[in-house]
Amino acid sequence: MAVDVVTETVIARPLTEVAGYARDPSNAPTWYANITSVRWRTEPPLAVGSKLDFVAHFLGRTLRYTYEVVELSPGRLVMRTAQGPFPMETSYTWQAVDADHTRMTLRNRGEPGGFARMGAGVMAAAMRRANTRDLAALKQLLEAAAAA
């Protein structure tokens, strides 16, 4: 069973600000509750081909994985990992709602293998909850910074 989780929010900040902050992997631990660290394998700045090591805690497990950036444009970022029991693609898209509001969409999809395949439904539900919380944290962070 494939996992394909899409979540989105509207953030009261311009597209360039939202995308600029969210696409910087070094910021991920500040708004993703489950990501504890990010280490650049390639030199910044982010570009197609960049590789990053992530450490996360999810469903009671510590996960270590390497993402490779496969697409990067002003309105989109796509990263993929192939190793481990659950190869994953994560994509971000940003669309201007108006000059001061941005719709951000976060999508995680993959095909769990082995034992992970049996828990794909539970994994998708947990991912949806986590992504919803993470986008809410990003929204709060960026909107509060603007108000300060």
Rank of each mutant, 00 (worst) to 15 (best):
L135K: 13
D4N: 10
T42H: 02
L72D: 11
A126E: 12
D134V: 01
P112M: 04
T90Q: 10
N108E: 12
T62C: 02
V18M: 04
S26I: 09
A19P: 11
V5L: 07
Q140K: 15
R109Q: 10
T36I: 06
N108W: 07
V3L: 11
Y32I: 11
S26A: 15
T16E: 15
L59Y: 01
R61K: 13
S26D: 15
G113Q: 14
Y67D: 14
Y92A: 01
A47G: 11
A125E: 11
M1K: 09
A19T: 10
A56I: 03
E111K: 15
S91N: 01
A19L: 03
T7L: 06
M79T: 12
P44V: 11
E71Q: 13
K139P: 06
P25R: 02
S91G: 07
L77A: 07
V122F: 12
S91D: 03
Y92N: 07
L106A: 10
P74N: 09
T62R: 09
R129F: 07
I35C: 13
G75W: 06
G119Y: 03
A148R: 15
S26G: 12
N108P: 01
T105C: 03
A22V: 10
L52V: 14
G20Y: 02
P25T: 14
P44D: 12
S37R: 07
V97D: 09
G121M: 11
R80N: 08
E8A: 15
T9G: 01
T81C: 05
R103N: 09
P45R: 05
P29S: 09
P87W: 02
G84M: 02
N27M: 09
R76Y: 10
F115M: 13
S26P: 03
P85R: 13
T105F: 01
G114L: 07
T9N: 00
M88Y: 04
G119P: 00
Q83D: 15
R64W: 02
T93Q: 08
A144L: 08
L46D: 09
V3T: 11
A99V: 10
G114P: 05
A47L: 06
F86P: 04
A144N: 13
V18R: 00
F54D: 02
D134M: 04
T105M: 01
R103A: 04
M1S: 13
P112Y: 04
T105K: 04
